[in-house]
Design a protein around this nucleic acid. Structure first.
Lengths: 238, 238
DNA sequence: ACCTGAACACCGTTCAAGT
DNA sequence: ACCTGAACACCGTTCAAGT
């Protein structure tokens, strides 16, 4: 059952003459609600109460819609980063950058489909460049040469925006304990080291309330390791 | 023009009764040659000289094909990693792991579409688990606790397999110098730090033969920074 | 200027039918 | 057991027509 009321509303959502902006915001909402696969031109048109072909008056094609939703999400990131409270980069670049990255991360946690879209963009969008420009500004204020700042961008990669794509997710261990144990048993001879690692992790935290794959914890551990490595190179005058 | 010869061949490629294996290898070849977008069930069928619907006797559906090509590529990775010459992990885990990761990287440089497919897999494939199992084995031999090995997998992420997805590619700077200079000019007020950084990089290497975004160089820089950070934590008994 | 309906060229997939 | 043709339910997109 959809939410579109027709007969009820007197003039069924009066003017609002559709615009690129409204299309893109609807696209973000649609992806948030129903997932990225639901973001088709036909469904998006339906969402803004129009026929699919009308969209093409406001966006060039579907690729332009995807570019556009990246833009919208990145604006949200910029707003979140600007609102962050942290030491001045001149005082403590690591704390300054760390706080910004974690703020950006929160935006992506609200739009979990967004990293996937970002990765499919062939051209770096101006919004992404603007974000990385800000990162370089923080690094420069912290005493980085342009050269080391450049290295830093490559080391951080998407982590500068607050997310990583994990290829190895030990999902087998998360489901109901009985089933997980059985699965680990079955995997034990093929993947002895992984199974040992996961068994050990479970043992360390038998309640599992945090989960031994607390992504936030892992994200911060990795981020701190990288920031530390960069600081060492900065201090060494690299 | 396609390469399928019909009238010429006497019995037009005699038996070879099609198999899951043959389908998957053809899929990899097709993606290598024509790109990931060309990997459709219909084109794949054509590639192995059969109607599209026949494929479903050997693979469940398209998702199974994508799972399968990941499997094939990962087997190639495992073979490359096994053939690597490097110090024993017990002697020098960093050198051992570094050499393996760079060997894996070479496989993905031959199949540039593969990272994109890998990232879309919702279930971690057994082949990926097997690879990471090997990585944990190296770390363990190098004196890592299971816990720190676990952290290490998260820090490395896809880098353990030899690739990263860069969101920020300063592509504006690569094209013909005149055009690049004009573009930098236009961007200078919006992205002063990025433009400064790129200008500086160009200045350092005016010939540009290496390119200031030599991915291999950046990959190794980042990898070494991370391995160093992990070694420090290992030595500290984390 | 903005929106529409019908149509086109593609997808993945199902199903009943062939050998 | 393996392969096929026709069909279905979707895509993104074009085009000529409406207001």
């Amino acid at each position: 059952m959809t939410l579109r009321a027709d007969a009820d509303e007197p003039a069924e959502r009066p003017r609002v003459p559709l615009s690129r902006r409204r299309v893109l915001r609807a696209a973000v909402e649609l992806a948030d609600r129903d997932g990225l696969d639901s973001l088709t031109m036909r469904r998006l048109a339906q969402e803004v109460g129009v026929e699919a072909m009308s969209l093409y008056h406001h966006v060039a094609n579907k690729e332009a819609v995807l570019d556009g939703v990246v833009e919208v999400v990145l604006e949200e990131v910029m707003a979140a980063v600007d609102a962050v409270e942290a030491p001045l980069p001149e005082r403590d670049w690591r704390a300054a950058l760390r706080a910004r990255i974690l703020a950006a991360r929160e935006v992506f946690l609200r739009h979990r489909w967004a990293p996937r879209v970002l990765e499919t963009r062939t051209e770096t969008s101006p919004a992404v460049i603007a974000y990385y420009d800000h990162v370089v500004a923080v690094l420069r204020a912290g005493g980085f040469t342009f050269d080391l700042a450049h290295r830093a961008l490559h080391v951080l990669g998407s982590r500068a925006l607050g997310f990583t794509q994990e290829l190895f997710r030990p999902d087998g261990a998360r489901p109901a304990d009985a089933e997980a144990a059985a699965m680990m048993e079955r995997m034990a001879d093929r993947f002895p080291n992984i199974v040992g690692m996961l068994a050990d992790a479970v043992h360390d935290d038998p309640e599992g309330t945090l989960g031994f794959c607390d992504d936030q914890f892992e994200f911060e551990f990795a981020l701190d390791l990288i920031l530390e490595g960069l600081e060492r190179r900065r201090a060494a005058g690299a």
